[in-house]
Design a protein around this nucleic acid. Sequence first.
DNA 1: GCATCTAAGTCTAGTTGACAGACTCAGATC
DNA 2: GATCTGAGTCTGTCAACTAGACTTAGATGC
Lengths: 161, 161
Amino acid sequence: MVTMRDMRRYRVENCSIERTLAVLGEKWTFLVLREAFNGVRRFADLQTRTGAPRQVLSARLSRLVDEGLLRKVPYQEPGQRQRDEYRLTEKGLDLYPIMIALMHWGDRYLADPEGPPVVVTHRDCGAPVALHLICEEGHEVGGPREATSHPGPGARLTALA
Amino acid sequence: MVTMRDMRRYRVENCSIERTLAVLGEKWTFLVLREAFNGVRRFADLQTRTGAPRQVLSARLSRLVDEGLLRKVPYQEPGQRQRDEYRLTEKGLDLYPIMIALMHWGDRYLADPEGPPVVVTHRDCGAPVALHLICEEGHEVGGPREATSHPGPGARLTALA
DNA sequence: GCATCTAAGTCTAGTTGACAGACTCAGATC
DNA sequence: GATCTGAGTCTGTCAACTAGACTTAGATGC
């Protein structure tokens, strides 16, 4: 059984993290997604709230639509022409754990002394939520020291000298 | 009680996600951290495995040390001079849920048909691990539709028109 | 038809960061 | 001093970001 420490002799050519980063791996995209999770859908609102330059925002929205994380939905204000707003797809919604993880790390290490600026709660009972790493046997896994990485079924490895 | 949908009238000025992204929000930093979690510590290995240009890598390592996510630890190979390697601090290790979340989203939506290239398991029992969003009452929270965001104790909000 | 409106882009020149490749540095060793 | 080796640093080119200005496309009214 090759463990990841042994895997220092190999490089994973099809790393999922790297593929995710190819879609997400820069600030403006994350901020757009943050606002999408906030229910913000329109260009001008996204632009105001993220602070992204309009060209950057346009490019990111286009990319996120192409990648299937956002979809365009036509809307029309009275007296105006039809326009599109942007909504999260299921694929986009599944980014939620990433957003929560980013927020909670920031809450812990970078927030002001008064505490977190935003609290996420369970809608049904009102209790604050947290991410837990749990194995299929139901054990709580406390962190990387209690976890082990192995090549998976799709592993494509390149040997290093 | 102001909910996040009401909070579309406000912008959070001290957003934790945004602060996290100021440290992390680009590809090379994430890839360096990925390798740090893999136990890779030395400049040349980090450079080979991430593919980062050396100048980029040097700048990222320096930044991550300044931000307290990595620390330098001196080492010396026989016949060579003393050098530094880079290890994760506790603050850096706490990024683990982010890395797992990125990996699992990529596994689901971007991996090859054969399946994930890397499987993370619980060290003690060998079962695969997954992130779960759980509230303090112990309920499983399935996703954003079952969660609500509120201003927290540190909230600094700016009204929008 | 023309003018006006408004939100969603697109354009442009300057700035900043990434990039490839070459080069330098700093101790240990002979 | 010469050689070695790993960890950077340097440089000119290219790509992306940025601020600000401008354009576009339908609806509406005259």
